[in-house]
């Protein structure tokens, strides 16, 4: 633990040094725009805006946040992929919708993973499979057992989570029914109201976990969650599938190295600021996780393989 901490501290320190060094040489010509791939008011918007504000204060650049909703970031990244690579626009998106489109309709997209230079990640969404405390099971094998003799409606607000459970369904040879919903809050409502036996949540369920009305069945990510270290992942419970959405930053491929370094460093420094940390912690219930340029790219490349498994491609 101590070792990773030291590494992290070193990384941050070098990023800071890099930032000052690079900033001396490079600054965006005109304003730097952070394009947010979602509409105003959501969690991605909130994160994008606080980072833009912090970056502006730290670097002295004129940083503007702008909403470019559409296709969970696909519209925004299409624009970024097809503009001059001069380091004046950064995109903030979520990995899952991009990966799903890359896997399912690559011929229709005007970009691929090589269309971008990656700058880092802000954090990831911790997806949990939850159920009401009085449900007659505590883990996924228990849920499977329950589904053998009962209807088992599961509420899901996104296709990847549903597909992961369809993967479980196929492996265990049982039937779940899926209730498509418009968000985690609706899942919680259906679970509390008894209409769904289980469902997915990305943090809003924490107070219910605390109050004992809801229990957590599995982590849908590839690691356990920081607030529930005792709840195993789907993989640990014997089903080799996961859903791991990251909030990531990228700019147009071919951006000059000095610009790329300056942007990477400025982003890393902003993510270390206390304001940003607390806003991310409050909206996503997770700490900052910055994978850095290499790590971000690796995460997306691995993600393509996993999403292909999800969609059985």
């Amino acid at each position: 633990m101590q070792f990773t901490k030291t590494i992290k501290a070193l990384a941050v320190a070098s990023a800071m040094v890099l930032a000052t060094a690079a900033q001396a040489e490079w600054a965006p010509k005109g304003p730097l725009t952070i394009q947010i791939g979602f509409g105003a008011g959501g969690s991605t918007d909130t994160i994008g805006r606080i980072i833009a504000q912090t970056m502006k204060e730290q670097t002295g650049w004129n940083v503007i946040a702008e909403n470019k909703p559409g296709g969970g970031g696909v519209a925004m990244f299409t624009g970024i992929a097809n503009r001059p690579a001069n380091g004046t626009v950064i995109g903030l998106g979520v990995s899952m919708p991009i990966l799903i489109n890359l896997v399912n309709r690559p011929e229709k997209l005007k970009f691929n993973l090589d269309s971008f230079d990656y700058l880092g990640t802000a954090s990831r969404a911790q997806l949990a499979l939850i159920a009401r405390t009085d449900a007659p099971f505590d883990d996924v094998p228990g849920l499977v057992e329950h589904a053998k003799s009962n209807d088992a409606p599961i509420s899901s607000d996104a296709k990847p989570q549903e597909l992961a459970m369809r993967f479980v369904m196929a492996q265990a040879g049982v039937d779940f029914q899926f209730l498509a919903t418009k968000g985690g809050a609706e899942n919680t409502k259906l679970i509390l109201g008894g209409q769904a036996i289980a469902g997915f949540e990305a943090g809003e369920h924490l107070p219910f976990l605390e109050s004992g009305e809801i229990k957590m069945i599995a982590s849908m990510n590839n690691t356990r969650h920081n607030y529930a270290p005792d709840t195993p992942t789907l993989q640990e419970q014997g089903f080799d599938i996961y859903v791991d959405p990251y909030f990531f930053f990228a700019t147009t491929a071919g951006t000059p190295d000095d610009a790329k370094a300056a942007l990477t460093a400025a982003l890393a420094a902003a993510l270390e600021a206390d304001d940003v940390k607390s806003v991310v912690a409050n909206t996503l219930k997770t700490p900052i996780i910055n994978l850095g340029p290499e790590g971000t790219k690796a995460m997306l490349v691995d993600g393509v393989g996993n999403v292909a498994t999800l969609f059985a491609k």
């Binding site: 008011g41 959501g42 809050a185 409502k189 924490l206 109050s211 409050n282 909206t283």
Partner: peptide, 28 residues
Amino acid sequence: TLGIPGSVGAALIISAFMIHGIQPGPFL
């Protein structure tokens, strides 16, 4: 009471709560 927004306006109010670290729900 449940942290469930009934409309876009309500969803915006929830996000304002969350920014300030307040989680609507049972213990509110």
